[in-house]
Design a protein around this nucleic acid. Sequence first.
DNA 1: CTGAAAGCGCTTACAG
DNA 2: CTGAAAGCGCTTACAG
Lengths: 344, 344
Amino acid sequence: MTTTRTKRVSIKDIAERAGVSISLVSFVLNGKSREHRVGEEIAERITRIAEEMRYVPNMVAKGLRSGRTYTIGFIIPDLEAPYFAKLSGIIEREASVRGYSIMMGSTGESDTRASGVIELLRSRGVDGIIAAPNHGSRDEIERVASEGVPIIMVDRRYDGADIATVTLDNRKAAYEATCGLIERGYRNIKAVTYRSGLEHIGDRVDGYLEAIAENGLAPEVFSADYYNRRDGIGRWIAASMSGPDKPDALLFMADILCVDGIIELTGAGYSIPGDVAVISFDKNDAFDLFNVPISYIEQPHDRFAEAAVEMLLKAVNEKEELTADKSVTIDHRIYWRGSTPVCH
Amino acid sequence: MTTTRTKRVSIKDIAERAGVSISLVSFVLNGKSREHRVGEEIAERITRIAEEMRYVPNMVAKGLRSGRTYTIGFIIPDLEAPYFAKLSGIIEREASVRGYSIMMGSTGESDTRASGVIELLRSRGVDGIIAAPNHGSRDEIERVASEGVPIIMVDRRYDGADIATVTLDNRKAAYEATCGLIERGYRNIKAVTYRSGLEHIGDRVDGYLEAIAENGLAPEVFSADYYNRRDGIGRWIAASMSGPDKPDALLFMADILCVDGIIELTGAGYSIPGDVAVISFDKNDAFDLFNVPISYIEQPHDRFAEAAVEMLLKAVNEKEELTADKSVTIDHRIYWRGSTPVCH
DNA sequence: CTGAAAGCGCTTACAG
DNA sequence: CTGAAAGCGCTTACAG
């Protein structure tokens, strides 16, 4: 394997071998034979030679010339979070089916890294962007949109921004989950969330508060620090579960919070649902593995991914603007399982 | 937001505004002022104007001209598998720190899709490839390598292929895990794997068989069909656990197999470790959540990712070949926890 | 039906 | 110290 980097074959090479001009090769290889009325035998010869030479088009050159890279940028907080890993996987598949590839950039919820990712995607000339950006990236995301790069937000949204989104009706989902707990007989329902300023998380809290208020109950929301979740949740659980105002049910606003919560609860000797019922946003494989199946509010990844890719590519191809009025809401579904039995 | 797609600013725009040639702009913006002895005031002016105009270099043009795209291709079986999600996340971060972006393609363990991904990455002109390819993609991977595209395999390897790898010593890890079980008093240890032809999985089975043979015990390996894991494992567990040759410990060759196994075991009413001890390859969040912590053999994702990115970029920059002798072995670590107590 | 030529944005010898 | 020009591989009017 002492092969030196062999030059890739170009349309020029094919043209030479076929004894025609590069224009003809380009026409044929792009399926424009008919349009340009290229001679049939010539077209066949070109196709055959291209195959023989294992021609792979240089998308970089194509991209420079045509301004289209057939690449979609995807901005996520964290590829390691199961929720986003799943979403990324499906988006990648949906895109690849349509001939697009994905360039991924994760922000780690850091605004600085988000800036870097955005600039990187712009420099790479992606045709469009699907983003689940930080709260603090609003200005930059809006600037990208105003510069005419098609962009669509997924999972997250900015209050009042004129950008199309694909989201759950988070307020309603949390409202329904809370009402469901109340119907099942729970009366002291507390919510666990994390500080972030993220609108969609705020929507969930709003839905919870609304349901609690409507039913004349007392709300309590614990906000963990994102980077010290486990500790914060652990301390809060210790205090809360042993205090006079012990909750009978917990609503977690994200699966990662719930996983931490379950570990802390069981670690402190509390049983689910014996001591406290548990329901969480997002689906997480661990919810099936726990000794009682954890109830959850599902965000259908596949529908998010499909909608986002489809809408984005439509905008790219038809030069539409992805304004807020194009936004789509995906239906959630609540799975009531062993962690939230009916009580009396 | 009725902005039409505004043209991006190019070095030509900057040159015009600065009243100089594009060469100068190129020199300055690429930090070659000194090298080309560009006038100091001019250099400053160019830098300032570039910032004012929010210049973002067109990497597509750069890529066409220089043949370098500052993009790494990453081929994985499945982004949704926690193990690869984690690995991808770290690789992306490592690459981005070094100014590279990642173009990801998942194969779903399908050779056809793998072909598509490889061609896509080649057409995009990635500077190098990190791959955890299918068993069946060997020829294509070797061809890519022989064409001079730097490529390194991670997690997986091909028997006797002259391609650098970053892997665990899988045989040794399985050997040690099996010996550990034997030391803890287990005598009827069975292994659960899946059919794939993948060398690294085969290595694990070899290590298991070696340890069993050395200790004069009887081996049994169950091979599930990858796409019907849960069912297959469930049926095998039902038969195996109720038969005369009931295992006292199970070694799972991958976390996904173990998760399925645990669900099937508990579903069938067996307790861990009461009825059977369990240890698995890979770390999985669910292993912490189960009512007894599951023992596992850790593959350190971060060290895999760092080694792969570093070696690949070194090869890219120094035009080295990534031959098999450059391969690196990452140390595993076994966590013995509640699912494998000492028994007598 | 086919080819020569311009140009996408950039880098880099080559002149001066 | 600075600029004009070629060329990366491709597409696409424009001629013929």
